[in-house]
Amino acid sequence: MSNTPTDRRYAKSHEWIKDEGDGSLTIGITDHAQELLGDLVFVDLPEVGQSLDAGGDCAVVESVKAASDVYSPVSGEVIAINDALDGAPETINEDAFGDGWMFKVKASDMSELDGLLDAEGYDALVAEEE
């Protein structure tokens, strides 16, 4: 039984993006992604005010094994980052869909969300990879 939240969308590169309903979107990596990476030891986040392109790399997560780029699923401006991850990157391992969120953006084109996967589509992608 999947525990992939249905209240958000997913990128094929394993990020989730949640419309908070107040014009902001929260972005993180999926539980499947953190599991593939293993124990995380370092997170490099974008800066507040930085403008992002859909599909562009904007953050890095490093596990004991390797570094991995995080891509922004949408274009927009970074309006908040999860500073708590700096001292506790393992929060992503523990709660990828909740406390392990990475940054929030103000999207420049909300229709970009339509091109992303829903929970069912993402689960199918993961099943295919395995």
Binding site: G38, D39, V64, K65, E90
Partner: peptide, 8 residues
């Protein structure tokens, strides 16, 4: 084996 759950 790479790990059995958590390498750390």
């Amino acid at each position: 084996p790479l790990h059995y759950g958590s390498q750390l």
